[in-house]
Design a protein around this nucleic acid. Structure first.
Lengths: 166, 166
DNA sequence: AGTGAAATCTAACTGCT
DNA sequence: AGCAGTTAGATTTCACT
């Protein structure tokens, strides 16, 4: 099935076994992955090869999914961030989700509990571009309605934290 | 004011001037920032130093905000992703936002239009941890109610796209 | 698992076109 | 603006603990 090969589909995978140094290391890399192994080693009181070994293992285990550049939406010409709740009539909308992925404005697609069945995070140039996008969504079969929440200010935006849950 | 020095506060900054190669380059780096300049050069039909120059300029201009490692929430012990809409009575809640930043479960904080005044993206170990978090939010002065949308499946999760808006 | 040294590769600077 | 050559530093492998 198509969803099973989807790299962002939530996994049933159990949590990885991580010690304190792993978590500290992950925190440092989640903040800035361009640090050298030598620098990380100093902060962790380890040698560069030892850090390298750990990073290799964490990548192998899928704890580190990728190293990416974080871009500034506004400077790219997309200053308007909006969360869109989408009401759907049927659950056979999965196929249509693939179409939404092709739209560069769409950053996140989740199916959720609650009144809505789907939640999108979208970034557009202006309200006009948002309206165009909403029209396209409404025109898709099975998508009956949307409620939009435009972000006025973003105070925090980061990825999953490796800090221990307890 | 504290918010003005906040690095994730939306900027009034105008979009940067980017040519097609810049956008292609940004797309490649947003996907995988660990590629060498030589490899990027091959893909862009440029020499390695030329790519380096462009990357340096894009970082300087703030289009590239950072290079970070993307971690797997589930493997870190936080398989439960939830979007929380928070109702607030007053607009003097800005100070309290700083407190929320300290919680490792909280990944995003936005003020939004619509019925709610605030939107949080949070990742917890289980529903119990989510409940604990919601209790803490409710106990904060000015935060009157919350509505939670638990993500059942995530089909897409990425950053801003550099693809030209038109 | 971690260390230290060696080899290979990459990044980053300089000057040239 | 981009290319070529050089140097300094980083990544990665290996033998040893």
């Amino acid at each position: 099935m198509a969803e099973d090969s989807n790299p962002v589909r939530p996994r049933l995978a159990p949590p990885a076994r991580l010690d304190d140094r792993d978590r500290t290391l992950l925190g440092l890399l989640a903040e800035d992955s361009s640090r050298s192994y030598a620098e990380l080693g100093k902060l962790l009181h380890l040698s560069a090869p030892a850090v390298h070994e750990r990073v290799k293992r964490l990548r192998q285990d899928g704890v580190i999914k990728a190293n990416v550049a974080v871009l500034d939406g506004a400077k790219l010409g997309r200053p308007l961030l909006t969360f869109v709740h989408v009401d759907t009539t049927s659950w056979a909308v999965t196929r249509h989700l693939l179409a939404l992925k092709e739209l560069p404005e769409v950053e996140e697609i989740h199916t959720v509990t609650g009144e809505s069945a789907m939640l999108l995070k979208v970034r557009t140039r202006d309200t006009q571009a948002l309206e165009d996008l909403l029209e396209r969504i409404h025109s898709i079969e099975g998508f009956t309605g949307t409620r939009s929440y435009i972000a006025l200010s973003t105070y925090l935006e980061r990825g999953p934290s490796p800090v221990a849950t307890e």
